[in-house]
Write a protein that binds this DNA or RNA. Structure first.
Length: 269
DNA sequence: ATGGCATATCCTATATGA
């Protein structure tokens, strides 16, 4: 099973790119972020024709997340992160897809910092950490995929110097991310490439894509049950090189779900 | 300290992103 996450930066503008990627790479599950569209503008029919059933949560102008499945329909578990009934941003979806719990998240950017947007980022992160503790300990396989808006270490950026004041590199942001991992999550990309600089985002400025001046901010975290199934992980960088591309590239894992069965058998004996 | 580029919207301008 292949599960991917892709910040599309506008589903309406990006639909041709999205469809081409789905056709070529055939992920079984795709988590999308930054739809930047109301629910009624979501291209549900185009995606169905491409072989995907969708669960989505839109919002005017900003944010917006979706979970696409090429197999069974995603079964909604929750449409918001617990902990703040006043939070109106569409940043979280959780669904069961073919036996896997899939969480699709778009963590707040947090710029400029310091300031109220950075405070919101950290508060949202705390809510995620609290909710994720249950998922990490779950006997079910769980993946938390999305745009975390955190560069975990200086090894995850082409050059931290010009980003030192950015919310994505702040010690508070990184501390939250490492506390999340400490619950038992496996950062699939870093697990697959322990000693390589690997990026998922290249901004539109100063020919950063052409110079491979990127950041690693899109992550797929696997709970221990699912980490046992990890086969491979990667970034579909060709998508970033297409005309009219998003500034993010799709990031993915492949999983051997056969390995879930021995664990269950062992528990019974 | 600002801008570079891109997207969306209340669109000869402004907010947001990362």
């Amino acid at each position: 099973m292949k599960i991917a996450t892709f910040n599309v930066n506008g589903i309406k503008s990006r639909l041709p790119n999205l469809l081409e990627w789905l056709e070529r790479e055939q992920p079984d599950v795709a988590c999308l972020q930054e739809l930047k569209a109301l629910d009624g503008a979501f291209p549900v029919n185009e995606l169905r024709e491409a072989g995907y059933q969708s669960l989505w949560k839109g919002q005017r102008s900003w944010n917006g997340v979706a979970i696409l499945s090429g197999g069974g329909a995603p079964v909604e578990v929750r449409r918001e992160l617990p902990g703040d009934p006043d939070d109106t941003h569409s940043r979280y979806l959780e669904a069961a897809v073919d036996g896997i719990v899939v969480c699709c998240l778009y963590l707040p950017n947090g710029n400029p910092q310091p300031g109220p947007k950075f405070d919101y980022k950290l508060a949202w992160f705390e809510r995620l950490i609290e909710h994720a503790a249950t998922l990490a300990a779950s006997p079910h396989p769980v993946v938390m995929a999305g745009d975390y808006n955190v560069v975990p270490t200086d090894f995850d950026i082409y050059n931290p110097r010009s980003w030192l004041k950015d919310a994505l590199l702040q010690p508070q942001s990184r501390e939250c991310y490492s506390r999340l991992l400490a619950q038992g999550w496996t950062d699939a990309l870093r697990n697959r490439f322990p000693e390589e600089a690997i990026f998922t985002f290249w901004d539109y400025f100063r020919q950063h894509w052409q110079r491979n001046a990127g950041l690693r901010i899109d992550h797929l975290l696997l709970n221990p049950v699912l980490a046992n199934c990890l086969q491979d992980a990667g970034v579909d960088t060709w998508v970033r090189g297409q005309p009219h591309a998003s500034d993010h590239a799709p990031t993915w894992v492949t999983l051997d779900l056969e390995r879930l069965k021995p664990a269950r058998a062992r528990r019974r004996t």
